[in-house]
Amino acid sequence: MTTTAIDPRSREDHDAAGERRFDELIAQDSRIEPRDWMPADYRKSLTRQISQHAHSEIIGMQPEANWITRAPSLKRKAVLMAKVQDEAGHGLYLYSAAETLGTPRDQMTEDLIAGKARYSSIFNYPVLTWADIGAIGWLVDGAAICNQVPLCRASYGPYGRAMVRICKEESFHQRQGFEILLELANGTEAQKQMAQDAVNRWYAPSLMMFGPPDEDSPNSQKSMEWNIKRFSNDELRSRFVGMMVEQIKVLGLDLPDKDVRFDEETGRWQHGPLDWNEFKEVLAGRGPCNAQRMERRREAHEDGAWVREAAAAYAEKQVLKTAQAA
């Protein structure tokens, strides 16, 4: 049934109707699905956000994967492998969601390795000790979960569904990170120091994962109007600080921030100043590990080309064989 040819409505009317429908759905806090009409900006903005999110999962595999071979117990080794594997899975869920907006995955990959696409700048920091694996799970995954839970209700259906699956699977990631830190904090003095040092290094970068302060975040407004984003950067950041303040007590470690306090007036947790200049520098590619992460991704993709080609060629040959046999 192709109605396009006999549809009496002109394209213009159709777009107007589509836009009306889109606005209605957003106003009702309903979901937009891939086949619905949507404003070009909505599509573009979502494609950017979801693909960046996917790239972050994939690049985010590297810093932790570096420790798979050195994990200090076999149980931790298995847990870390499963976690890094989950990140590959999450990248795949997100690429699928982004693909529904019309950009094929290989295009997104090309953009990433060509340096045209961004990913979370947190992954450009080096993972120096085993305690960093704990701090990443606790702080980085913790911040990510804080960000992602509201995204389960994002107005774009495939994105929301991917986030639901991801959040469900990620609950173990933060817990395993916390457990690693707790074990270290209760271990020898050297282990405890290792844990404190990792928290010191990852605390500020994890707060910056929520993005620039609200007044410097021009894209946020539109994103909130479209029901993609539900809470502002500062709102989520403050919520996260509040959780960390409590949890660090259990760890018996200190947050490297003497300015943390609950502001009765705003009802929000306040934190010390963050070095947004550093954030911009890392985002612009001048972080300690940007070049290394990109090189590894490019290498894996390029080294894998002959395998992908071989499998595609084999599939073609099989189709031909079946056709000839018939």
Partner: peptide, 15 residues
């Protein structure tokens, strides 16, 4: 095999 995770020819193969 652990070395391959994040280096496989395609993401599905990483998994």
């Amino acid at each position: 095999l652990g070395w391959w995770i994040s280096r496989a020819p395609e993401l599905e193969e990483d998994v």
